Computed example of a mutant assay.
Amino acid sequence: MAYWLMKSEPDELSIEGLKTLGQARWDGVRNYQARNFMRLMQPGDRFFFYHSSCPEPGIAGIARIVSAPYPDPTALDPTSHYHDPKASPEKNPWLAVDVACEQVFPRILGLGLLKQQAALAEMALVKKGSRLSVMEVTAQEWKAVTALL
């Protein structure tokens, strides 16, 4: 099992919204490095659900991958904010996965708190200039974050 961190703006999909839905498609990733991480995802992998671009950014809970990666249908939908005019049914470079909520944290683990943790000094999330919406998390980083609860 691998660990990940995936970012979403809460007004698009929040951890609470995912809990209510039960399951949702994680789509709209339009960065090749983040997409390459998604290629590695397997059902059963877990990820930190990070709320971004909001008043209180941070890790809001834990969710799991419930499907293998598949072509992102939003790339082909001209009405979607994530439409890619270069994508076609035969050549769609973008991926989506289905996800489900495991745990909503009682409080947001804010970026400031995460940056204060020596055990997380090498975590991609806390490094300056890291803006990926999907990133790997090591087992040690996973343990360090969950110990903050």
Rank of each mutant, 00 (worst) to 15 (best):
A2F: 12
A2T: 10
Y3K: 12
Y3E: 05
W4K: 07
L5C: 08
L5R: 05
M6R: 04
K7R: 09
E9T: 13
E9W: 08
P10L: 08
P10S: 10
L13I: 15
E16Q: 15
E16G: 05
L18Q: 00
L18E: 09
L18I: 04
K19L: 07
K19S: 09
T20V: 10
T20A: 14
L21C: 07
Q23F: 09
Q23C: 08
W26I: 10
D27C: 11
V29R: 09
N31I: 03
N31F: 00
Y32S: 11
Y32F: 13
Q33D: 11
Q33M: 12
R35I: 11
N36T: 09
M41E: 06
Q42V: 00
Q42N: 13
P43K: 12
P43G: 05
G44C: 08
G44I: 11
D45W: 07
R46H: 07
F47P: 07
F47I: 00
F47K: 04
F49E: 02
Y50K: 02
H51Y: 14
S52T: 15
S53I: 06
S53C: 08
C54R: 10
E56V: 15
G58R: 10
G58Y: 07
I59V: 11
I59D: 01
I62L: 05
I62F: 14
I62P: 03
A63R: 04
R64S: 10
V66Q: 00
S67Y: 11
Y70N: 06
D72V: 12
P73K: 11
P73W: 03
T74C: 01
L76Q: 03
D77S: 06
P78D: 09
S80V: 05
S80G: 13
H81E: 14
Y82Q: 01
Y82F: 15
Y82M: 07
Y82S: 15
P85S: 08
S88C: 05
S88D: 06
S88R: 10
P89R: 08
K91Q: 14
K91V: 14
N92H: 02
N92P: 01
W94K: 12
W94Y: 12
L95Q: 08
A96I: 01
V97C: 04
D98F: 13
D98Q: 02
A100M: 08
Q103A: 08
F105Y: 14
R107V: 00
I108S: 06
L109D: 06
G110M: 08
L111N: 13
G112C: 00
L113I: 09
L113E: 15
K115L: 04
Q116S: 15
Q116K: 14
A118G: 00
A119C: 03
A119V: 06
A119I: 02
L120A: 04
L120W: 07
A121L: 02
E122N: 14
M123G: 00
A124S: 13
A124R: 12
A124M: 06
K127R: 14
K127W: 04
K128S: 13
R131S: 14
R131T: 09
L132A: 00
M135Y: 03
E136Q: 12
V137A: 06
T138H: 04
Q140N: 02
Q140I: 07
W142G: 08
A144N: 04
A144K: 09
V145F: 02
V145M: 10
V145W: 04
T146D: 02
L148P: 03
L149G: 00
